[in-house]
């Protein structure tokens, strides 16, 4: 976690992540181009720029499929959380690959004529009279613009500045993916020789859709649902259900999400379940070095007051707890951000 904004935030883990990512990208593109040049020579040579366009487009499509699978994979199996940790670098890398594809297409197909290449992207290659004749490249351009917005605002500065809007903005990845599928379906898949492309699209849609559906049905963020009645305190359950240094997530009246942690064996603390960084699920985190640690990017908060340890300044809402026997009771009314309250001590034995 960081308290100042630098252009690109790296640490050793992120460097390893990025190096592995770009080695895979380079392997794919270099071998794609090399094999094409090896098998299609002289009179059968496919135009170099078309080969590059295809290499970057298929590479980008595979990358986007992978990016969209990381979220549900991490929910299904926490061992995939490290992939989520640096997903934004993955996303920006994907955008760069897609941008190269788009630039090559504009250069090769839309330049060297009487029409401005950018105008040609909008006006050439079809008409707006019918769905079947709609210029397929427009869908690609629109999705590229969406990915640009996401890449340009991927930095923590924008995350902090835009607040809740940031998350909504970055959900554009789904309409962007849908536009890309239409772009491929109305473009390359209309060719007489589509090769392996239809299978790639089928596998991608099945993987992305299937994993999202499976994780939503069987691995949704599980939360203990409680109803608040007349009393301000709601019964949560036995403290023994919480492992030491771990938390549980409680949903009160289907709305307020609260994370209750047990730490130092005998202390209980309730804070908001929503990390201030990227809305990560704090209740799935762990208490490390005395701080609640978000499972997504490692942002930390003190259980006593919901504040990040200095020099960091993030604050989350805190909640009051009380213990009657072994049973935890929660006051679901959130206290202001970073409000300290008395630590609930477990005094009974189990």
């Amino acid at each position: 976690m960081s308290h100042t904004f630098v252009p690109v935030s790296w640490n050793p883990r992120k460097r390893v992540y990025d190096v592995c990512l770009w080695i895979c990208i380079a392997l794919y593109i270099v071998l794609y181009v090399s094999v094409t040049n090896m098998f299609f020579q002289q009179e059968d040579a496919i135009s170099t720029l078309i080969v590059l366009m295809r290499a970057f487009s298929t590479c980008g499509f595979i990358m986007l499929t992978f990016i969209l699978c990381i979220g549900p994979l991490a929910r299904i199996d926490q061992r995939f959380l490290p992939l989520l940790y640096n997903r934004r670098h993955f996303g920006v890398s994907f955008f760069l690959i897609a941008l190269i594809h788009g630039a090559l297409a504009i250069f090769w197909y839309h330049s060297f004529g009487d029409i401005n290449p950018i105008v040609s992207v909008v006006t050439s290659g079809g008409s707006y009279g019918g769905v079947g004749d709609f210029p397929f490249q427009l869908f690609g351009l629109l999705s590229l613009l969406m990915f640009f917005v996401m890449a340009a605002t991927s930095h923590d500065y924008w995350n902090a500045t835009l607040g809740p809007l940031w998350k909504s903005l970055h959900l554009l990845v789904y309409p962007g993916y849908a536009l890309l599928i239409i772009h491929i379906g109305m473009g390359a898949m209309q060719e007489s020789n589509t090769g392996i492309l239809p299978y790639m699209v089928f596998i991608s849609v099945t993987l992305v859709g299937g994993l999202h559906l499976y994780s939503a049905l069987f691995h949704s963020r599980q939360s203990l649902a409680v109803e608040q009645e007349a009393s301000s305190w709601v019964e949560v359950g036995n403290w023994q259900q919480i492992e030491n240094d771990r938390g549980i997530t409680v949903t009160v009246n289907g709305a307020e999400r609260v994370a209750i942690f047990r730490y130092d064996e005998c202390k209980l603390s309730a804070v908001s379940n929503v990390c201030r960084h990227q809305n990560g699920p704090l209740g799935e985190g762990k208490v490390i070095d005395g701080c609640i640690t978000c499972p997504w990017h490692g942002f930390q908060y003190r259980p006593e007051d919901g504040r990040s340890p200095p020099p960091f300044t993030e604050k989350i809402e805190t909640f009051k707890l009380k213990l009657e026997g072994n049973v935890i009771y929660l006051d679901p009314k959130p206290l202001p951000l970073g409000t300290p309250r008395e630590v609930t001590m477990i005094t009974t034995t189990h």
Binding site: L27, L31, Y32, V35, T36, R54, A55, G195, M200
Partner: peptide, 9 residues
């Protein structure tokens, strides 16, 4: 992937 997809052209 790079090699096999390229070969499909």
């Amino acid at each position: 992937g790079g090699m096999s997809i390229a070969k499909q052209q």
